[in-house]
Amino acid sequence: MTAETANDIEPPLLSLRSVSVDFSPGALARMLGASLVKAVDEVSFDVRAGRTFGIVGESGSGKSTTVRAILGLESISSGTVRYNGVDMSTLRGRRRKIAAREMQMVFQDPSSALNPKLRIRHLLAERVKIHRSGEYGNRTTIVRNALDDVGLPHTHLDRFPHQLSGGQQQRVVIALALISRPRALICDEAVSGLDVSSQAQVLNLLNDLRDDRGLTIIFITHDMGVARYISDDIAVMRKGVIVEQRPAEEIFADPRSDYTKTLLTAVPTLPRTYGFTEV
């Protein structure tokens, strides 16, 4: 393990250096003249602990591939991913498992992330068995605490996933992730399939988790309004390349790249901000 030349006193929780992911065409496609697709091209960024890092971009920009590469779900063609200062590719066995447990993923569609045949109680208990097997005797308490953390009532324990609304399902998914005691939560379009009011619940919850427990969040979205609301830092991706990467406030106040400007002007906006007082 070599020491990273860090500018900050505290090293970043996650650090990507020139990470590329190539999708090479199969033999037949090569014969037909298909060439290598650089899904992620030399991407570098740091995610500091206790902050929310937003990745925005349109479909096909490589934002999902980037986080899948972080988790090892895609193989990296070149570059390094460091978690807690350690190169992820050198991790083996128990240490790899710990890293996997500490970075939990939340996907877009909660109904396909939850086993439809299990009650919420069993879904959550199963996760205790996998990631905290030593405490399996305490599973009732752990499960109840997890539901409290995401603001769902205990009466939901005996329900099946289909009996919950989309927002409630997504909160169950987050409860599952929390049982694993993660340091980072990676959310891939986690609110895109939800109604605005459910979306608001999940966004509020993620903000609380970051503020109260110092959870690090990587948040992928195509919605600029959501990205601005939740992120501390933002990377704008296009065709596998990060075109702009700065603190959220700066990007929205003064976008530098033309692509960011195009994206921002395309976002449909409301005539004004609506608050509670007007309701």
Binding site: V196, S197, L203, M224, G225, V226, A248, T269, T273, E278
Partner: peptide
């Protein structure tokens, strides 16, 4: 409520 639930580009963070 619907209007106030939308995180717009101007919503206070």
């Amino acid at each position: 409520g619907l209007l106030a639930a939308v995180p717009s580009l101007e919503t206070e963070k």
